[in-house]
């Protein structure tokens, strides 16, 4: 496995002796994820999300750089709000910070923290990173068009039996399977 290691490698010398543990049983992880989602429903009356947080950040930055431009755009306006509250003091922004912390804790406990690039054997690191950026851009665009990403739509809306979210979910898998053939070199 090629990996552009080095940066994180140094401080890892101690725990490097440990092999990364295998991922947990998918069904147990699923139940755990479902219970977290349920907790969000019961306590907050809302589901989980991810892409809303970057949207808030972008809206704030655009608003700082070009306030007039942002004011003429309903998309940014929605995230900036009416100015009474700080747009970054937002539930999703804090939730996403938690996601990073939670991922790090879980990864540390299982010795899975490692600076590397996940990719198939037949693709260069540079190519993989380029693809990651392109994929991320498409995902960001698509998520905004669909009013939510896999967390906000598929997971949350799926559990709520929301019509649009189920249509969305099938579209995601449809799009994925359609495109899979063309990008097989990257993964297989």
């Amino acid at each position: 496995m090629t990996s552009i290691s080095g940066i994180l490698e140094k401080e890892k010398t101690e725990i490097k002796v440990y092999e990364p543990k295998p991922y947990s049983n998918p069904y147990l992880a699923g139940v755990g994820l479902g219970l977290v989602l349920l907790a969000a429903f019961l306590i907050m009356g809302r589901g989980l999300g991810a892409s809303g947080a970057p949207s808030s950040v972008i809206a704030v930055v655009v608003n700082k750089v070009a306030p007039d431009h942002a004011a003429n755009n309903n998309f940014y306006k929605e995230y900036i709000g009416d100015g009474t509250a700080n747009p970054l003091k937002d539930w999703l922004v804090f939730e996403v910070i938690g996601v990073a912390i939670g991922g790090f804790i879980s990864g540390s406990l299982a010795h899975r923290i490692k600076g590397k690039v996940e990719k198939g054997p037949n693709v260069s690191v540079k190519m993989r990173l380029t693809y990651a950026f392109i994929g991320g851009s498409l995902m960001g665009f698509g998520a905004k068009l669909a009013r939510g990403c896999t967390s906000g739509q598929a997971l949350t809306g799926g559990a709520m039996l929301n019509l649009g979210s189920w249509a969305f979910m099938f579209a995601v898998f449809g799009g994925g399977y359609l495109a899979a053939y063309f990008f097989r070199r990257q993964w297989l």
Binding site: L48, Y79, G81, D90, R147, T156
Partner: peptide, 8 residues
Amino acid sequence: NKKKKEGC
């Protein structure tokens, strides 16, 4: 009061 969008 007016609700901000709660979605993702």
